[in-house]
Design a protein around this nucleic acid. Structure first.
Lengths: 160, 160
DNA sequence: CGCAAATCGGACCATTTTGGTACTCTTTGC
DNA sequence: GCAAAGAGTACCAAAATGGTCCGATTTGCG
């Protein structure tokens, strides 16, 4: 399914939410509540994001997190990379040094590069600011089930 | 890492190999050997591919698999979809009927559509024929370790 | 006919990854 | 110096993944 891990999913949701209120500091608890993500998870992700330099953190009482740069200057790609490493569909490509010595058997290799690049580009073209503005205003084609997915599920499981 | 599962990875390698020799029938064993994938795995994948209508299968002695259409008419996207379901990064989007009712909390939703579309398009633009031709002729920047990755590993493990 | 070569369609298991939690330490504002 | 916040890290449980095996069915061919 080529799906993103929840870490990255959550991470983007949180970043997006932070980008919406450019209030300088947000405590982990605030962000977690806003994004409907269990606090421990949110905390973990925020830490990673801070370590990656996408968020600036203030310790101590009255501390919290804030975007390290303008929302326009942070791309979706960066958030994903921070949370799940380099963007690459195949292990062939992975981190540069190809681990696949059987090119003669795998002519696909070079072409994967193309695909990977296309995806990376797509991800790099969208900034958190863009994610935050949401669609012009309409509510999209109209959606079905009202229950929030992953987020609300884990939310329920928490107290249970 | 947004990585593809090995199923899809293998699947594409096998399809690519079949596309290279437009010989009509290939037995699962042949394909597996050609692609350096353990037979049981290959078999499993081929079955899925056949069920998805990308391969035509002939049973019985002298049977085997063949591309259901011209290599030009089969896209990488199709192979991936056949092996791991719809292409969607987030569960929000998934299969059309959005499962995420909290749009107000998740303005990101609409924008994900854009990203997903971009990726889908990239994957749909490449046919198996293109994958098969490989890069013009050069061997790429030159690769490190000579051992074939995953494929050869599992290959070793087989007899052991 | 009947055997052998193939695919088909499952179930099945082990390992890895992922999602999620907990606990302790450090920093800092008041 | 106490309380609120993040940092770091270790840990666990559940799910997905990669991989194997087996029995049934089909079909070519001697």
């Amino acid at each position: 399914m080529i799906r993103l891990s929840k870490l990255a999913d959550y991470g983007i949701v949180m970043m997006t939410n932070m980008a919406r209120h450019p209030r300088r500091q947000h405590s982990a608890a605030e962000i977690a509540a806003e994004s409907h993500i269990p606090l421990p998870m949110a905390s973990k992700i925020l830490k990673s994001l801070a370590r990656a330099g996408l968020l600036a953190s203030h310790r101590g009482a009255k501390g919290g997190y804030g975007l390290a740069r303008d929302a326009e200057a942070i791309t979706v790609a960066e958030v994903i990379v921070a949370l799940e490493g380099p963007i690459a569909l195949t292990s062939c490509i992975e981190d540069g040094r190809g681990e696949c010595g059987i090119e003669s058997l795998c002519p696909a290799r070079a072409n994967w590069q193309r695909i990977n690049d296309a995806i990376r580009r797509a991800l790099e073209e969208i900034s958190m600011a863009e994610m935050a503005v949401a669609v012009p205003s309409a509510f999209m084609p109209a959606i079905g089930p009202p229950a929030a997915r992953a987020a609300s599920e884990t939310f329920r499981n928490r107290e249970a």
